[in-house]
Every structure is written in structure tokens, then in C-alpha cells.
Design a protein around this nucleic acid. Structure first.
Lengths: 288, 288
DNA sequence: CCAAACTATAACATCATGTTATGCGAATAA
DNA sequence: TTATTCGCATAACATGATGTTATAGTTTGG
């Protein structure tokens, strides 16, 4: 093809970055293997035979495809292609994740992503079954087939704007003793931790409403149903919607777990996205 | 691809007909060049990574196309593909050639053929201009850019069936002295040769009708317009249509020329077809 | 006829790719 | 647990493909 497009062996050799004799012999070797002439000599130059012209379009296609393959593999090393299948808690799918994902995909036109929100137990199953590349869950207790890394998210106390609590710098269980309290779900680890904190402070909390999600809690607080302890980034989202928040003391983490199947090797993009996601949460991490 | 489809390096090596270490190192060399893993080890076996799966369809396509190329080049050496552009006298295009071509193409599904019938001068132009691969013409006088080989076709005397001439074994000019004679065109070499024969025999021939083509002459003879000297294979075609023919003495050749551009290298199929065509005429050749 | 351009060949260097021999780790059976 | 088997990786080496430089033969154009 180089000889055809460059018009001579000498030019082809230059184009290919090899010496003229090298090109010359490559050509003669190829001809030997084919049992028919590839070029005719004509006025000292080489012109493709009819046979060669028959093969030409197919060969061009192969070269083009090989170029494509080379491009794709470059994209792979640049983490520009791939498919990430992730599972997450329903809260994430609607609040924090979309921005992170959009941000990540903006620079990576070839990367596809599947996001499946569900309950933690289901997420765990998916990890064990290797149906997903990674997941975001909480209350993760460990499993031999799952690799996990925890993130301690800062939590704050949220209350309606204008509430007297606003005058405080940080809020303690004692400050909430008379308040209607919107609690996390009783099965959750966060519930247990919170109740421990209250009992340590010898403050009894009124069982009032139990919700699974921080966003639901925020909504309820918005509507004056009481106060709640939620993750800081949920709280921040509701700041413009009539909520205020203050630091809660003692600092109480809400522990998220980034999980992935331990045996399944993560793709390069997946690793990169996990790192990207972790960083997106760094402003909200509890610095122990 | 061999590793993927065979499930293991060992099996792939066997499939490729190389040793296992060779396959093993081919794989590691390829990986080195790509900067990302192609396979993961899993229970001692190799499973393709997500990255590899992305490349897989393109690679399959390349391999398939390369197989095609190999097939085509095999077809080329077997003279199974190609394009023959030929020019011929109008008489051939309708009478002898179709069968020869059909016969030739029957065994060669990939070969295409273009047949262009025209006058000899035009055919000559096409040869010089290298627009056709070869041509069949007559009255060819030679040209530096054209290579030619002559074929002397046997000619016979045709007359309507039942004519007294049928009793003769061979016909001489003298036998035709009183006959209306359908002559070849006065510009043709055959005309000159024929008139020479008649004058040598001191037989004057009546100028009656002049035609360019043997088939036209045969048609005229059919309709009782006279007798004619035509090529044997034209005569034979009219045997069932009311004509008889006998040897003409002295044996007079009708000289056809197979011509082709001298500089343009003929394709393998073209050479083969020319040979095929020559053979198709061998039963009609004048054995000097 | 000479100079320039192009191709082919020779002689040699180097690297990719093949070989055999062997070791290592994981799965399997005793 | 231990021995065995299986699959892969590595070492050491052979060889052919592919590169190099040097050089000679052809053809073209002035």
C-alpha cells in the first residue's frame, strides 16, 4: 500500500521510515509468498497489477481497522473508554452521584456507565455475584468476597431556619432534649451510634419518626416535623430550602462503604472513577 | 483471540501450532506494547479483562478480513478472479464468442468480463490506448504498441442445400465461374486474397454483393442470393439453416489477429482466457 | 553521453519468534 | 497433609524476518 500511495519504492520506504533496500526486499518477499506479481515495471517505476488492484480495497480496510484498534487501545490506556456498572444507595442516585458522574464522563466520551440504586443487602448480593463493578453502601459488615473501604461522612444537626438552635455554634444531645427527633431507621448502625451518644449524655430522645434516608429526614424537618442528624452534604443541599444546620457534638460519623468484588479485577476506568468519587466526598469527610 | 476462544494459553498454542511458551511470550510481549492488562489470572486460568472485551470485536473483524484477503489472493493464483476487458469484431460478439466466454466463466465465479464489439480500426485504437486487455480483429497490419498473434481460420464455400455443388468434394474457383458471388468487403485483406486466387485461376468473379461480415454473407446465401467463401465456423452454424458447404481449394485462410497492448502487462486471467479462446478456434484452424 | 533517480542485490546486524527444559503456584485426589 | 496434575512463566538458545550500508544496473532527461 505504501508503494501504491507513494508511487515508488523509494518514496514508500521514506514514508515507512525504513531504507529503500528494506522496502524493496519486503516487496519481493511478499510477492514470493503470493505466487503472482504485485507490480509491473513500467518506465523504471512500479505500477500495481490488476491483481493488486483487486486486493487493494480489502487491504485498505484492514489497515484502517488496525488503526482503529490502535486508537481504541490508546483510549483504553488514557481511560477514555470502558463500561462502569455501579450500584448505590437510592439517596446517592438522586443527590450526590449525578454531578460526580457527569463531571467524570465529560472528559471521557467513550465511557459508559450503569447506575443501579437499591437497598444495601441487594448491593451486597450484586458484589458477591460480580454483577457490578463497585457499589456505595452503608452498614457494611464485611464479606470474604467483597473488598471495601470506609468513608466517615461528617454529620450535622438540621432544624428549620430561624429556630433558636441557630444561635448555637455546635449542638449537643442536651440541646435537643426537648425536641421532636427524626431518627434514622432502627436497624441501621447509625441509629445505634446515635442512641449511644444520647444515652451517654443521659438525654432521652423521643421516638417520633423513623426514616431510612437522610433526604427524607431533611424533607420532614423542612415541614417542621422536628430536628434530625444527617450527613453534612444532605444538609447543605437543603440550606436554600428552609433548613439551617450546625455542627453536632460529639462528632458522629455516618460510615459509607465503597465496595467491590474482591476477585473481579476492576477495569482501569473503574479504578479511576472510584478515586474520583472518593475525592468528591473529601470535603464532607470527618477528619478523625 | 486464540487465547480467548480456546480458553487457555496452552490450548491456544496448540490451536496455533506453536509451543506453549511461545504463546505465553507472544502474549506478554503484546501486553508490554499496550500498557494495559489483556488477561487476568483467575483460578490459574486467564480471563479477558473488560479492556480486552472492548477490543475483541474489532480484532475479530481484522482477522476475518485478513482471511478474506488470503482467500482472494488464492483465487488470484487459481485464476478465479479478475476483470477481462476485450474488444472484438461484431461478428464474434454474437456468434462464436458467447459460448467460449460462458464456458470460461463457468469455472471462475469471480471473473468479470467486458466485451466491446466494434470495427477493427477502433479496436486498434483501444489497444494503443490500453483501454482493453485484448482484442480480436482482422486485417491487422502491425503497430509498435500492439502485440499480435495471427490465427489462420479455414474457409469454405457455402451454397444453398441441394445445390449441384454438393456433389463436389472440394470446390475450386473454376466451379464458381458462373455463380453470383457474395464478396467480402473490398477493403479487406481477405477480399484481396480471394480476388488473387480467382485471377490466378483465370476465373472472373461477378461483383454482385459486398458484405463486411461472414454471417451476413451466410444469410444472403440462405436466401438464394448466391454463393460465398466464409470461415468454416460461420458456415457450420448455418448448416441447419439451409446451407451446405464444401472445402475450398486452394485453401485460403481468413486471418484473425489476437491483439493486446504490448506495454500493459496482461493479468493472469487474461492470459488464460486468451489461451482458452485460441484453443476454441483450433478445430477451425488451417493446418499449413 | 552524462548525471540523476530508481531499483535490485550482497553482506551483514539485530530482533522477533520459535524451540526445549524447567520451575512455580493452584487445584485435586489420596 | 502430601503427592499429583495442570497451567503458566522463565531461561537459554536457534533461526528467520527485517533492518542496515555499500554498490551496481536501468531508465530518463538534458
Amino acid at each position: 500500500m505504501a508503494v501504491i500511495s507513494n508511487g515508488s519504492v523509494t518514496a514508500a520506504a521514506a514514508d515507512l521510515g525504513i531504507s529503500q533496500p528494506a522496502a524493496s526486499r519486503l516487496l519481493s518477499d511478499l510477492t514470493k509468498g503470493l505466487n503472482f506479481q504485485l507490480f509491473d515495471k513500467r518506465d523504471g517505476r512500479l505500477v500495481p497489477t490488476q491483481e493488486t488492484r483487486i486486493l487493494q480495497p480489502d487491504i485498505e480496510r484492514v489497515l484502517e481497522l488496525m488503526g482503529q484498534i490502535s486508537d481504541i487501545s490508546k483510549d483504553i490506556t488514557n481511560r477514555q473508554v470502558g463500561h462502569i456498572r455501579m450500584a448505590c444507595l437510592p439517596g446517592f442516585a438522586t443527590s450526590h452521584l449525578p454531578r460526580v458522574v457527569a463531571d467524570f464522563l465529560k472528559e471521557r466520551p467513550g465511557v459508559r456507565m450503569t447506575i443501579e440504586p437499591d437497598r444495601p443487602e441487594r448491593i451486597l448480593e450484586w458484589m458477591i455475584g460480580e454483577q457490578y463493578d463497585f457499589g456505595i453502601t452503608d452498614d457494611f459488615v464485611g464479606h470474604p468476597a467483597v473488598e471495601s473501604s470506609d468513608l466517615d461522612i461528617r454529620t450535622v444537626c438540621v432544624f428549620p431556619s430561624g429556630d433558636p438552635l441557630e444561635s448555637l455554634d455546635s449542638i449537643t444531645p442536651r440541646d435537643l432534649s426537648e425536641r421532636r427527633f427524626i431518627q434514622p431507621h432502627r436497624d441501621s448502625a447509625f441509629h445505634r451510634r446515635l442512641s449511644r451518644v444520647f444515652s451517654d449524655a443521659q438525654v432521652s430522645w423521643q421516638t417520633h419518626i423513623e426514616v431510612r434516608q437522610f433526604t427524607a429526614a431533611c424533607e420532614l424537618v423542612c415541614h417542621g416535623a422536628g430536628v434530625a442528624i444527617v450527613s453534612e452534604f444532605d444538609a447543605r443541599k437543603y440550606e436554600t430550602l428552609g433548613l439551617s444546620y450546625r455542627k453536632f457534638a460529639p462528632a458522629l460519623p455516618h460510615t459509607l462503604s465503597l465496595v467491590r468484588p474482591i476477585l473481579k479485577k476492576p477495569s482501569l476506568v473503574t479504578l479511576e472513577f472510584m478515586e474520583h468519587f472518593r475525592e468528591s466526598l473529601s470535603p464532607y469527610l470527618l477528619n478523625t
